[in-house]
Every structure is written in structure tokens, then in C-alpha cells.
Amino acid sequence: MSSIILSTATRFLLPLLLLLSVYLLFRGHNEPGGGFVGGLVAASAFSLYMIAFNVEKARRILRIDPRSLMGAGLFLASVSAWISLLQGRPFMTGIWVEKVFPVIGKVGTPFLFDVGVYLVVIGVSLTILFTMAEE
């Protein structure tokens, strides 16, 4: 499995792909992309790493248990949905910060939600793949 070319390439590819995934996530609201695709790209980056090296290394470089990512993402997504309730508006109503940030653009609860989706997708894909590879 561990061909040198693949492992060397992966060392470079991993950060690049992660960057791409974050980029996809951020631009998703305006261009094709978004949390799903972003998350999937990030997951494939780590799975590439897993194929090039092994599961333990992939786990180590991820640092967090992917299952925690899943939980965190789900939590973030649901919290973003709750915020509007505190303001007395219906569930999941988009709340936007007026200021426009560079790169990200406008920030609001839908974006937060998308980040949650992103985390869940990474967590889920990696949980599945790592589990299967470990067996």
C-alpha cells in the first residue's frame, strides 16, 4: 500500500485539499460548493492519507476522534437553529451580522449551520472509513 510516491504526494496534497475544502465551504453560499462538498473533500483528504500511510497515522494527524466531530457539528447546527428562538422569531430564522468580513463575506446563522454540516460530514465519513479500515 505504502508506495513512496503516494505518501510523498499525500504530504503535500493533504494541506492543499484541506484548504480547498475550507474554500468550498466559505464560498458555498454564493458559488457552487458548501458544507457538504467541503466536508467530503476534507474527508477524502484524510482518507487519502489513510490509504497512503495507515489508519493510526491518519487518526493522529486528525487529532480529534471523528465521532466527536460528528457530535460537535450536530450540536453547532442545532444551536445555530436555536438562536432565532431567543429573539422570539421562528425556529431557524437566519440572523445576520451586519458587518461584511473579508474572504468569508457575510456571517450569519445559516453560515454557522453550514459549518456544522461540514463538521458532521467530515466526522461521519471518517468514522465510517476508519472503522472499516481498522477491522
Binding site: 466527536s68 457530535g71 425556529f91
Partner: peptide
């Protein structure tokens, strides 16, 4: 407005239990 809580309460319960 509280209606969706019925759906979200089990979700949060699940997420907390998951952690």
C-alpha cells in the same frame, strides 16, 4: 414557535448522550 422543540429536544438529548 416552540413547536420545533419537540423535534429538537430528542436531537439534543441524543447529542448530549453521545458525548
Amino acid at each position: 414557535n416552540a413547536l420545533p422543540l419537540i423535534i429538537v429536544i430528542p436531537l439534543l438529548t441524543a447529542v448530549i448522550a453521545l458525548s
